[in-house]
Design a protein around this nucleic acid. Structure first.
Length: 300
DNA sequence: CCGTATAGTCCAGTTACGTCA
DNA sequence: GTTGACGTAACTGGACTATAC
């Protein structure tokens, strides 16, 4: 993207900065294990500059989520226990879920279905234990008001450990983790979603700070260049016999419209993409104008 | 092979609850 | 005891992909 910096003299100077927020998910915190994560890591590694990377497809984690796609249409929940919420949900004989229901209801029904299957599998008659206040409290209020439930330290730390290993879960991993934590798979899923969102937010903040610093650096660089330009102009006027004497004054490549110095950049006008050297200007190492270079005004 | 339905997952945004100063 | 800020669990809706028919 183009980037304009207003220098101390309120001059708009197109410096052609190709900056952008890398909003891609930060993989630095999580060692990638699956193919999708590897792809992200590659992308990230090759974008060392702060550059526009918006638009990464979010569909990159779908490669393995059907590994354990249990066909639950044939699952008949055993609802012998008089759990009213569940009884209401699964009136369909084969356990299928009608599409016409609101999505949230569908999701909840499906989730409860999973829980039932899960707990039956575990031969857990009643989900009442000290470590899982979540499950216990979630099923006895018939969903009238959602309750905010806090995870225990042990649960949180185990989730964190798993997140460090892989930021996404396949169904198998989700089931296993839920079983281990005595949570519903949906809760594990939600936790991972929220955790990814937090990580991304954090990374965005870091990116913002970085871009801010880049902007400040470039602004300062621009200010220095303007100062040097003024000095150069002054010295040229005072020394008409200088080496530049034979050049007509008009060949000074100061763009008349934007007063930009030459150098072949031309970025920032939206026509040629990000500047190639937008961030390669080393601070304290000003790039002096080369009078023999092509006039850049055409790009302005 | 193509179109459609369905299921599962993701993300961005939002809501609402629990905690704490 | 009340209140506002904050963290975060949970929800919503849209998008996407895979699979079955």
């Amino acid at each position: 993207m183009g980037f304009q910096v207003i220098d101390g003299d309120d001059n708009l100077c197109n410096i052609g900065l190709g900056l952008g927020l890398n909003t891609s998910f930060d993989q630095s915190e999580s060692k990638s294990h699956d193919h999708a994560d590897d792809q992200k890591e590659l992308i990230r590694r090759f974008k060392l500059e702060p550059i526009l990377t918006l638009g990464f497809s979010s569909s990159d984690n779908n490669n393995n989520h059907l590994v354990e796609a249990v066909d639950r249409r044939n699952y008949t929940p055993s609802l012998s226990s008089p759990n009213s919420a569940l009884s209401n949900s699964f009136s369909n004989t084969n356990g299928s879920i009608k599409r016409s229901s609101p999505s949230s209801v569908i999701k909840r029904e499906k989730e409860l279905l999973l829980v039932v299957g899960y707990h039956e599998e575990m031969e857990v008659e009643k989900v009442v234990n000290s470590s899982s206040r979540v499950v216990a409290s979630d099923e006895d209020d018939e969903g009238s008001a959602r309750k905010k439930l806090r995870l225990t330290k042990e649960q949180s730390s185990l989730l964190e450990d798993n997140f460090k290993e892989h930021s996404t879960l396949n169904p198998k991993q989700k089931q296993a983790l839920a079983k281990q934590l005595n949570l519903r798979p949906r809760q594990v899923e939600v936790w991972f979603q929220n955790r990814r969102a937090r990580t991304k937010l954090k990374q965005t903040e870091v990116d913002c700070e970085f871009l801010k610093k880049c902007c400040e650096t470039l602004t300062e660089e621009n200010r220095k260049l303007h100062k040097e330009l003024q000095e150069f102009k002054a010295s040229k006027l005072s020394q008409p016999q200088s080496m530049y004497m034979q050049l007509p004054a008009a060949t000074l490549t100061i763009c008349p419209s934007c007063e930009k110095l030459g150098g072949g950049g031309g970025a920032g006008d939206g026509t040629d993409g990000p500047a190639k050297n937008s961030l390669t200007m080393a601070p304290g190492k000003p790039q002096f104008y080369n009078p023999f270079q092509q006039h850049p005004s055409a790009a302005c």
